[in-house]
Design a protein around this nucleic acid. Sequence first.
DNA 1: CCCTTTATTGAGCGATCACTCAAGTATATA
DNA 2: TATATACTTGAGTGATCGCTCAATAAAGGG
Lengths: 190, 190
Amino acid sequence: MPRKPNYDRNELIERSRDLFWRRGWAGTSLKDLEAVLQMKPGSFYAAFGSKDALFKLAMEKYAVDGLDRLKRLATEYGPIKALQRFPQMVIENEEAPAKACMLSKTLLELQAHNHPLAHEANLHLLKMESQFAELFEQAQSSGEIDSAYDPQVLARRYQSDLLGLRVSAEREGVDAMAIAAEIADSLTRL
Amino acid sequence: MPRKPNYDRNELIERSRDLFWRRGWAGTSLKDLEAVLQMKPGSFYAAFGSKDALFKLAMEKYAVDGLDRLKRLATEYGPIKALQRFPQMVIENEEAPAKACMLSKTLLELQAHNHPLAHEANLHLLKMESQFAELFEQAQSSGEIDSAYDPQVLARRYQSDLLGLRVSAEREGVDAMAIAAEIADSLTRL
DNA sequence: CCCTTTATTGAGCGATCACTCAAGTATATA
DNA sequence: TATATACTTGAGTGATCGCTCAATAAAGGG
């Protein structure tokens, strides 16, 4: 008996993600969302409940996609080569809404307000860090890097470097590709 | 004939800096500022002109103070030791409004809106980067590090690492001091 | 003292914020 | 086709946004 929505929910979440990623939480108004999603307020709230609820969905899609890209890279090239390629891959996409990481942007914007979305962002970052650690561990198992290192320590540092890279890539007049190459290069010396 | 203001302008700017640093640009309302500065709207606008104008002043103070701390560190310990100590110093201050860099927070928040303050933040970051490069150069002159390196390249990477560290330090459950130690340690291998 | 000049006050401006809801519309099932 | 069940519409909610300004208070110079 029901009537179907005339939109693709997944695509709406992707469009929201791109807008939130670029403009941030406070920087994205409901008018902006209505324009990009081609939805009136009533439909919007029927579909997503609130701005924050949609932001959460958008951030989840962002995190899952990032994790997927890394895993695919690891499947194709092996763990250490994946970690080497990832930084460059992440900043070279000209079509991406922003160079900086959506999770870190959200964290920095909302952490001081104790906003639940900041905590959510940190959880996604932790998941990513675990995946980094797993790849370092695999690289040790296959003898690609010295097994004396603690994979968790390597992952922690790698993620910090990646976050720094992506902030730098957001700046004008900074050769981020060169930094990415340096990060990749430093992994060959493990 | 005139009447003197009954406040210390410099202190007001410092209090504003702390609030802006912690809460960000959009996250700080005029009500917040009025509360912290103990000023009514009229006085506020007579004194500073606008929220953005005060933010600019606050950011300048932030940048100048940061530069000063680095320079004092270099005078006391020498260039390379200063660069080694700086990361730890920057994240260990518990009284600071935030661990993350105010300039990077401003850049990430406002860059996508082409807000003048984002450009301003980048200029301050460039100045800081120049100071890093100068210290690396001094370290080369005194033979502390290999002179084959390009000081600008070292400075670019150092600043990126520092920005990453400070984002990481903002997170819960991340041992930022360990990352700071690693950054410092990597400078001994130059 | 008076007078000029500036600082301070606080009610309130228009604009925008996230969001609501009653009314209208489309669709799958009976 | 009739009906039930959603989805869609868009004017409009109260709250908050950055900010203005006329009125008042205070402090120097004469």
